[in-house]
Amino acid sequence: MASNHKHDDPLPDTVLRVKSLESLLIEKGLVEAEALDALIDRYENKVGPKNGAKVVARAWVDAAFRERLLADTTSAVAEFGYTGAQGEELVAVENTDKIHNVVVCTLCSCYPWPVLGLPPVWYKSAPYRARVVREPRKVLEEFGTFLPDDMEVRVWDSTAETRYLVIPKRPEGTDGMDEEALARLVNRDSMIGTREADRPAMAEGA
């Protein structure tokens, strides 16, 4: 398990103000967390998981891009025009036959939003934040992701400065597919690491 980054820096003042409003309004029953998330999902369509999916698909087909992405993720992703706030570093972690990566923010909900949009409800939930560090395999199984016993699981703890993007493994049976078709296989959760990329048949059925 790798958790290399400290979480010492306070959250920006604006974020604290929004979190304060949100948590108080939810506690008083004036708004519902699920309803807020549903609304945000509906309107938040400028940045979304499809940005990340394009990045992953490019990495699958273009070896030179993959190398740039792993060496300097922030710059490689900027080739697509996706940039975040200043001072935020994006780090791509690649799944292989031996390593499975999964991302959490144990403190709050730091998330690579320039490539993935806004975090899903479960990513922000206290159980996920606590449990994925303690028992990652069990949490992954709850997402329907069963890993071989000899697969190493690495859990990455996001911070305000460092956000992680998981590059899922390219699914079997996708040899002839072009970048655009491949991008449709890259679901959001696969870039957080809780699921794998879709197999071609799954994406057609969706």
Partner: peptide
């Protein structure tokens, strides 16, 4: 907003927007 709908640059903007809409709806 642009042709696709509201433009949010950071998550907190969408969250502030969503709280406002929900309080109005309520």
């Amino acid at each position: 907003q642009d042709g696709d709908g509201p433009v949010f640059e950071e998550p907190w903007q969408a969250q502030a927007f969503a709280m406002t809409v929900k309080l109005n709806e309520a």
